[in-house]
Amino acid sequence: MFLDSSDSIEKFGLDFIFSRNWDPVREEFGALTFIYGTIVSSFLALLISLPISIGVAVFLSEIVHKSVRTSLSFLIEILAAIPSIIYGFWGIFVLAPFMRTTIQPFLQSVFGFLPFFQGTMYGTGLLTASIILAIMITPIITAITRDVLKAIPVSQKEAAYALGATKWEGIKMALLNARSGILGGAVLGLGRAIGETMAVTMVIGNKAQIKASLFEPAYTMASVIANEFAEASGGLQVSSLIEVGLILFGVTFIVNSMARLLIYSVTRKA
């Protein structure tokens, strides 16, 4: 990858990472908008998905009756098996109109003073892409969190209850013990979100720009590669796209190592 992107690395140098301009006609390429789109959409997705996943996992492993548990977890796991193109179609035909008519006007009326929720409501855009991603990574994080919770010895729970802990206190203790595993699940989910291409491409709006508003269209690294690679004409464009791939690789690497460090520090404290 490094070799194939050497043309663009030579021509643009570090500017490639800090330039917002992507103009195939003039052969000027910069990846900042794509890096921004990828990171913001993925972290936003994680932010939405994490509380839901943990809630569902706790519900499945601690609260609900066994018979419901199996069928419910099966249903959630089946979400992970849906191809991303289907999520994309669902996103554009069901979620986007719903966002436009219901969720975005609501957000604007309540939080409209924040720059994140201002501007025109398209339905598609950064926020919609994040929600699609959140739905896609929820089953992964849920499954892992549930398994980690299951791995906590029953004796520990019983001990807690024996000491007079309420159900809520018991769950709190379990979550505290499982935190490194939950973080691991979150990282796995984040990795999936960063690399996701089709579903995001279909709803994010594919516009290389950085705007404060989450309603505005954006563009991710994986999407630009998928969109432009097949028809990329000049050698420089191909080379730049490969460099975008290289950066995507780098970002994934950095995010993963940071997560590793986080898990390491959390487990050491325990």
Binding site: W22, V25, N206, K207, A208, P217, N227, E228, S233, Q237
Partner: peptide, 10 residues
């Protein structure tokens, strides 16, 4: 075949 449109979404 591929230009930078000043406005809109893709």
């Amino acid at each position: 075949k591929d230009v930078k449109f000043p406005v809109g979404q893709g």
